[in-house]
């Protein structure tokens, strides 16, 4: 087991971390399912007339172990991030990064098409693009 100091060596870093967590807890409109522990992974959602775009900020993960599922209009992103192995006789001065299992759940809008989903992992961001059903897309009707 690495040695962990009882008090954070850098009090300011600790205060910054607290502030970051407070911001994450209050600055955004909280979802009914809450935020993942330690804010991991953070999710940004955007929409276009043709698709719903989800950006999951999940750095340091083997993309093959990511589990993305859609069931009854609910999208789930789950996985596990393993802690970096600490060498023997090492002391951990700052320990803020999340490790362990995580799961985040997002309700998709009604017109999302679960059959047309694309997921890509790049630079630690999982980008999921869910197309909207063609029937729900705005259409111009020609007047006869």
């Amino acid at each position: 087991m690495p040695y962990r100091p009882l008090f954070a060596r850098d009090v300011f870093a600790e205060m910054d971390r607290l502030q970051r967590e407070m911001l994450q807890a209050f600055d955004i409109s909280p979802s009914i399912r809450g935020l993942a522990r330690g804010g991991y992974p953070a999710i940004n959602v955007g929409s276009t007339p043709k698709s719903i775009e989800l950006y999951t900020f999940a750095p340091g993960i083997d993309p093959a172990t990511l589990d993305v599922q859609i069931e009854k209009g609910v999208l789930t992103v789950a996985g596990e991030r393993k802690a970096e192995p600490a060498p023997e006789k090492a002391s951990v001065h700052i320990d803020e990064r999340f490790s362990g299992r995580f799961r985040r759940v997002v309700t998709l809008p009604e017109d999302a098409d679960p059959g047309a989903v694309e997921a890509r992992y790049r630079d630690g961001v999982l980008h999921i693009s869910v197309a909207r059903k063609a029937s729900a897309q705005p259409r111009r009707i020609t007047v006869q």
Binding site: P2, R20, G60, D123
Partner: peptide, 23 residues
């Protein structure tokens, strides 16, 4: 944004990990 970091010191030096998703 302030990225989350881990700082680990061993006899040979310091290893720092920082989460910078999207960079």
């Amino acid at each position: 944004l302030l990225p989350a970091v881990d700082v680990i010191e061993d006899t040979g030096g310091i290893t720092l990990y920082a989460d910078l998703p999207g960079v």
